[in-house]
Nucleic acid binder design. Sequence first.
DNA 1: TATTGTTATACTCTATAACTATA
DNA 2: TATAGTTATAGAGTATAACAATA
Lengths: 136, 136
Amino acid sequence: MEREDLGALLARITRRLIDAERPLLSRHGLSMWAYSALSRLAQQPAATQQALAGAIGYDKTRLIALLDGLEEDGLIVREPDPADRRAHTVRLTEAGEARHAAVQADIRAMEDQLLGELTAAEKRALLGTLSRLARE
Amino acid sequence: MEREDLGALLARITRRLIDAERPLLSRHGLSMWAYSALSRLAQQPAATQQALAGAIGYDKTRLIALLDGLEEDGLIVREPDPADRRAHTVRLTEAGEARHAAVQADIRAMEDQLLGELTAAEKRALLGTLSRLARE
DNA sequence: TATTGTTATACTCTATAACTATA
DNA sequence: TATAGTTATAGAGTATAACAATA
């Protein structure tokens, strides 16, 4: 059995993908973590900043500065939760939704090119299996 | 199309895998990069340290301290290349081979458990597709 | 007493430049 | 002059602890 470790395979592919995403993101003025937060918020607003941090696997203390920047750019808004005044809800603005959609379109195009050599069935199988593994 | 970005999927799975590997590696007294270097050297010795750094995607300046530690532990040996006395070849010792084999066995077992819910055919398809994507 | 958001601090990791010895 | 290995230094990224406001 001369195969590579699964972790080594995934790490190499992930690194390639990140290298390809970096210039796309920087062209839109976003860091990787900023895009990660926007993507999460595009699915659903966050009830607390801590929940958002947990959802994207980021640290709550580092999230502060990240959200500060996104808010300054008008891409998100923080609003105090009337029910619990310690907490702040976080949601995308219209500009934030537009920015996220534009970046995601670029990233999907890049991914499609990378997966170009796969057949449609292979692509479906890959994405399906990865989704299952990620969900657990 | 409500799927997640490929990069986001891969990053999540890779992080899960790394979290699962960390305790295994530390039980064997190895860092992630140390294991990465041992894995590469188990495939073939390195003609130069720079070649090894390139092969595992690490920085040549950071590789120094890593190899210092591995050499001190008796897992690798550096030998000056008689043909070019600037260069050092790097290869595993017997102890290095044994250590690598032991760690890899643990990691493979963990991976198999993680992939446990997949059928044999799905596993083959996944590893095959990932290998192709990693190779390019 | 516990939790949310926040700040400050220390620590680790990574990138850059420069040195030496060879070629 | 260019390259392999090395060292030193600066910068970015990350983790830990502590604080104020609220529950």
